[in-house]
Computed example of a mutant assay.
Amino acid sequence: MLEIITSEALLPTRHGFFTRKGGASSGIFHGLNCGPGSTDLSEAVDINRARVAAYMDVQPNHLQTVHQVHSPDVVTLTEPLIIRPQADAMVTAVPGLALGILTADCQPVLFSDPDAGVIGAAHAGWRGVKDGVLEATLDAMEALGADRANITAVIGPCISQAAYEVGPEFVESFIDDNPENSRFFSGGKGDRALFNLPVFGLSKLRKAGIGHAEWSGHCTYSDPERFFSYRRTTHLGEADYGRLISVIRL
C-alpha cells in the first residue's frame, strides 16, 4: 500500500509527499524508490513511478521530473518533456501535468496558487536555497499569472536540525553571507553545529512575500521505515540510497 502525506494548506490542489512504502524495489532500495539516477533496477523504478502516476491520475509520461543539480534553475512546462533538463524546479499552468521532485534529505517544496491555476515544485537543498531556487520558483509562477501573496508552499519530509551536523566552514560560509544566518544553527559536539534546513527554507519563502509556508515536520534521517536518507546511508556505509518523490498537479 502506498503511503502519501498531504497538507490541508495545499488543498484543493492534488498533491502528495510519498513515503517509501508500497514500492517494488528491494534490498537497500526496498520500497518506492523513484530515482532513475540510482543503481536500482530500472524496471523496479519504472513500476514505482507508474504507481505514483496512477495515484495522481496521470499517464506515466505526464509525471515529470528534472535532472536535479542543486541549482536555482526553473523549467516552465507547457507539455510533457521527453528529455529531463538540468534544473531544480518546475512550474506549470497546464492541467494533467504532474510535477515530481526527488529527495533523500533535501527539501521537496510544493507550491500552489489555486485561484490562478498555477503550481510549482522545487528541490531545495542548502545550496539551492542559498542560491535562490525558492524565489526563482515564485518568480516563474508569477510569470504564469500567479500572485505570490496567494501562493501556498509546503516543505515535505526532509532532514531535521537534530540530524544535520555540519562543520565550522559550513557555518562560516552562511554567516559571511549574512550574520543573521547564525539563527539557523545550534551547538553540536566539539566544533560541529546543527543546521536547521527547513527553517532556512521557510525564512526564504516568507521573506520573498509568499502567502503561506509551512513544513510537514517529518525528518527523513530519523525514520528509516518511511523515508530514504542520503546521510543515513552514508553513516551506515551503504552503496546507494533510494529517492522519495513528492508530486503536485492541477
Rank of each mutant, 00 (worst) to 15 (best):
G167S: 08
L11M: 12
P168G: 07
S26R: 15
A136S: 13
I47N: 06
P85G: 12
S42P: 03
S222Q: 14
S71M: 13
E3I: 14
P80L: 09
G128L: 08
H212T: 06
S26A: 11
F184C: 02
D176Y: 07
R127V: 15
G31Q: 05
H30N: 13
T152W: 07
T76F: 02
W126V: 14
A24F: 07
P157Q: 11
S229G: 11
S112V: 11
L202A: 08
A50I: 00
H67I: 08
A104P: 03
Y164A: 04
G35D: 05
A153F: 03
V91E: 12
E165S: 15
A44V: 09
Q86H: 12
A163I: 06
N196K: 08
P12V: 11
V109K: 08
R226C: 08
V247D: 11
G145N: 00
T233D: 00
E79K: 15
K189I: 14
H123R: 12
I4S: 05
F29H: 05
R231E: 14
I210S: 13
L194Q: 04
H30R: 15
K130M: 13
T65S: 01
R148G: 09
G100C: 12
A24Q: 02
A93Y: 06
L63F: 05
G125H: 10
I4E: 03
T220E: 01
P85I: 12
